[in-house]
Design a protein around this nucleic acid. Structure first.
Lengths: 224, 224, 224, 224
DNA sequence: GATGAATGAGGATTCATTCAT
DNA sequence: AATGAATGAATCCTCATTCAT
């Protein structure tokens, strides 16, 4: 901490406070929605003073931007690890879908924030679609999928996954629901019911490291 | 007493102003989102004074409630007419889905408002799902659909329709996209691709009367 | 009622609605205080429409004026009857003081309104003091009282009576407290403790007719 | 950490602004009454911005609370000093009563505010009565007072003092009136007229330091 | 006279942002 | 870098008053 005048760690510290603020923002967004979240509340949640916020974000908009990026990126990075070992685009798609839905149970805070931010930002800043799109195309090229309209397929995947997450937030057991969601998605993409169900239930490969959004205790804080 | 004579007139007036406000709210919500819409802006859009708003809605929450109801109800009633002549639940489902997506082009204001309100209200107050749910069950009972998990099926339909509406708002041609969306939904519900595609492209039965959200002309506005 | 086109009762009716409003004002003042009472609330309490108020009082101020007058006058008229039969100014003073305190129990609504209005109106519009002042002077002339400063004596009587009313509103049994208040007042005016106590406990002569502030029953309410 | 160094300064500043606001509130209450005082007016009177008010009081109620406390406490502390040297409860009572009435002349702003706040707050939050009560009981124990009902005695003292203050505000010369008020009070508490008058006229012991409510000079206001 | 919809000025409260320390 | 007091624009909401019916 700067108070004890330890000069060398300055850079790390700067990053640390910024992270505190972003994590706090995620939690507050989850509670109140991105629109109703007050800066002073985020600062308080992060445990810093009101004015400190403006050392890291020039405006409230800048925070929204950064937060929505972080929300999707965090999970995507973890999922990427999980998918790395799998070749079949259909299975990759199922893994991704299920992971999202499962994560709504693991980290409801993250999920609520994602849902709220997703729909609050008019333009689809969250470029979450890219890996999905790749799988979609790959799957069609390999004959695993059979859909006529790529954009409709994307709507299917994204829309169903988000709705599935909402269901889990509303109390649906995640493990079963994740598979059910993956199954209807795979069918929608043109697989046979049998194939879809089989893939949707296959054991999930392990996840990459996935920091939780829970209030960071001192032990869980990745960035000392 | 004067009431017996006056009441109907008064009532009509009352209803009229209330409608002005609701229509204005829909337009403003579409522009700004439900969270960022200022009461005074809605009042101005409706062409009434600031305080008049509070003669009709006790708080902004009450307005949100009423608006979200009206948004879905308006289309549902129209769709009901359209579906009335069709028996096959699969086709009814396709009609409903396509109508929603098409409507995003017919009335982008309505669509934007619906999307924003839908996600702003935490609990699914809009019981839009009821007719859909009936078709879902009917379709399964008749062997038209073949899905394992009803809740996942509902997520599929609602999620995909909403995402499809968003796509249309983002510039996608509605007619084709509506059919494409319906097709992936029907497949996801367990129909064969061939059946799904056929039903999704079938000509739509005519719609019931559907009031537009467009700015009302001057003839309907007493106070310029 | 005008509605049934019974012309002759117009005058009586007009007075009737005015009374409804004044009674309602007293009740609302008692609940909220004169400052915080909204016109529309008074109108509602009186069972008439918002705008009807302005047929009887040109402004909110006019109502305050009329109400504060009515508040004191109502009791004073009743008390006057009670005092008429008594000659001794000391006993008249005791009767008046006790009646006020007792009335706080009989009609807490009236008492609360009186206390609030009394202090809200900067100038002592309530010329309640006149009969008291007469007794004060008469008592001194007859040697019943022995005080040096008339104004201080008036402060004693008015201040103590009002404080006594407040005590009763706060739950003090009225009959005993009224006598106790009268006793300290008479002593303060210079009587011997023995005389003061004796007079303060003497049975009260009967009261004149005293309309209550209680919510009028349905028979008095023209509007079903 | 910087806090240890900064806190005292900050605290002082904080306390200073809070005092500015409380003093301003007293002045505005005196002018308009507690009910009609607008927050923005108080802020303006204190020379701070509108929003600053809310850094110190969460609502107007909180301000009323704090103000009524401060109003009574200020005088009580000063009076305590004045009474400290006197043993006789009767004389202590007289000193207290006279001081209050005198203060209405010294600081009419304070007096008007006290009267208005006193009656505006339903419950007697101002525990001003405690030292008075002690003297009341002590006086009776020592045989100086002779009253039957303690609560009535309290009504006598408080009611008469407040009414006396009002008289002084209305133009009555304070010194004489204060003694006259004390005299009727002591008589009311059961002293002989001779004793009461003697004590009520005895020279007053000096007062403790008593900050005035007058508009603070420009030197104390950093932000004109 | 009664009604109640409409008005709009006025007041309370919030909150993003600045800045001196 | 951190702080948190100060700011004031923006917003919500109330309510006395007017007026056409």
């Amino acid at each position: 901490m700067p108070r004890s005048a330890v000069a060398p760690v300055r850079g790390a510290l700067r990053a640390h406070t910024r992270d505190l603020l972003l994590d706090a923002a995620v939690r507050v967004f989850a509670r109140k929605g991105a629109g109703a979240a007050a800066i002073h509340e985020i600062a308080a949640e992060a445990g810093v003073a009101n004015g400190t916020f403006y050392n890291y974000f020039r405006t409230r908009e800048a925070l929204l931007e950064a937060t929505s990026l972080r929300l999707a990126r965090r999970l995507h990075e973890a999922i990427a690890v999980s998918r790395a070992a799998v070749d079949d685009p259909a299975e990759r798609m199922a893994i991704g879908s299920r992971r999202f839905v499962l994560q709504a149970e693991q980290d409801p805070v993250w999920a609520a924030a994602l849902l709220r931010v997703w729909h609050a930002t008019a333009t689809p800043k969250v470029t979450a679609a890219d890996p999905m799109l790749a799988d979609l195309r790959g799957g069609r090229r390999l004959g695993r999928f059979d859909f006529a309209d790529e954009k409709a397929a994307l709507d299917l995947v994204q829309g169903t996954v988000l709705a599935g997450m909402r269901s889990v937030l509303d109390g649906r057991p995640a493990a079963a629901h994740a598979s059910a969601v993956a199954a209807v998605i795979l069918r929608g993409l043109g697989m046979t019911p049998a194939d879809a169900d089989a893939i949707a239930k296959r054991p999930l490969p392990p996840l990459g490291p996935l920091p939780s959004s829970a209030r960071p205790g001192s032990t869980t804080r990745p960035r000392p």
